[in-house]
């Protein structure tokens, strides 16, 4: 997929704005998960604004591509994208985590059209995505299913159960994207529970791995194009990312997995990110 330089600039600007929006949402909520929300910004931008069949005016169109945010703690990024696309009103964004808000701390598919699956307990989304891809095969429906995984998340055993299932049924309509920021709540992934050579592991299970720079939209789109062109079975894109990307004091720091942002930190983050917030 060739992007014009102008389009690429626009997508980067939107990513900047999403990042600013996410920080404002979590700051206002007084709690949330900045690190993993910020590491997935460009991936979600590339998917929703370039790759996926998704009509914001008809988020439940049966022909739409499916996106499962298996790392449900990155919900603010998904909500911010939905607000940008007018799937939800921008005035709702700062209600994140407030009593009565549709914007639950982790995504709730019943309350927000466009959220394809309620998520939060890590590891479940890949099995869910396999189920959606199987349904597409059974219905002979042409949609593709994308699942965004965290890297700590693949320590869950159920991930590998899903990996075997997708291989058994040759789900070439399923692409996982690994937000590989290398950091989880308690520390560095490779210290908490070493992931090893993730690409080799998936390959050994019959998946075709692709890699990309998870903050470079052109690189992400290239990998998505390769992954969706692969017809022999399921594919995974290992997207190298930085936890807390865009905010210097958060980058690569596990304490920013889940933590409130104070007034001082908020001002510094906004100054570093720039752009505008989509929150109204």
């Amino acid at each position: 997929m060739q992007l014009t330089a102008e389009r690429l600039r626009a997508l980067n600007e939107i990513s900047r704005n999403l990042r600013r929006t996410v920080v404002e949402m979590i700051y206002t909520a007084g709690s949330g998960h900045p690190g993993g929300s910020l590491s997935s910004v460009e991936i979600i931008t590339a998917l929703y604004l370039e790759k996926m069949k998704f009509d914001p005016r008809n988020p439940l169109d049966p022909r739409r591509d499916r996106f499962v945010l298996s790392k449900g703690h990155a919900a603010p990024t998904l909500y911010a994208m939905f607000a940008y696309l007018n799937v939800i009103p921008r005035s709702e964004l700062l209600h994140l985590r407030k009593l009565g808000s549709r914007l639950q701390g982790h995504p709730d598919m019943k309350s927000v059209p466009g959220v394809e699956m309620s998520s939060g307990p890590l590891g479940l989304g890949l099995s869910v995505g396999a189920g959606m891809a199987l349904a597409a095969k059974l219905n002979q429906a042409p949609y593709h299913t994308y699942v965004l995984l965290g890297d700590g998340e693949i320590q869950e055993g159920i991930i590998w159960e899903a990996v075997m299932t997708a291989n058994k049924y040759k789900l070439n309509n399923l692409t996982a994207i690994l937000d590989h920021n290398g950091v989880q709540l308690d520390g560095i992934c490779d210290e908490i529970m070493p992931l090893g050579d993730v690409a080799a592991k998936f390959a050994a299970f019959g998946w075709r791995p692709f890699t990309c720079d998870g903050h470079d939209i052109a690189s992400i789109l290239n990998a998505l194009e390769e992954a969706t062109s692969y017809r022999e079975g399921p594919s995974i894109i290992i997207a190298k990312t930085v936890k807390g990307k865009g905010v210097s004091y958060m980058e690569g720091k596990n304490i920013w997995h889940g933590k409130k942002i104070d007034d001082h930190e908020y001002r510094q983050a906004v100054a570093e990110i720039g752009g505008i917030s989509y929150a109204e």
């Binding site: 598919m109 394809e116 699956m117 989304g125 099995s127 396999a130 959606m132 891809a133 199987l134 349904a135």
Partner: peptide, 14 residues
Amino acid sequence: ANMMAVAAGLAACG
């Protein structure tokens, strides 16, 4: 567990 979550994905698609 995988079976149950796969079923959720199938049900979400009708």
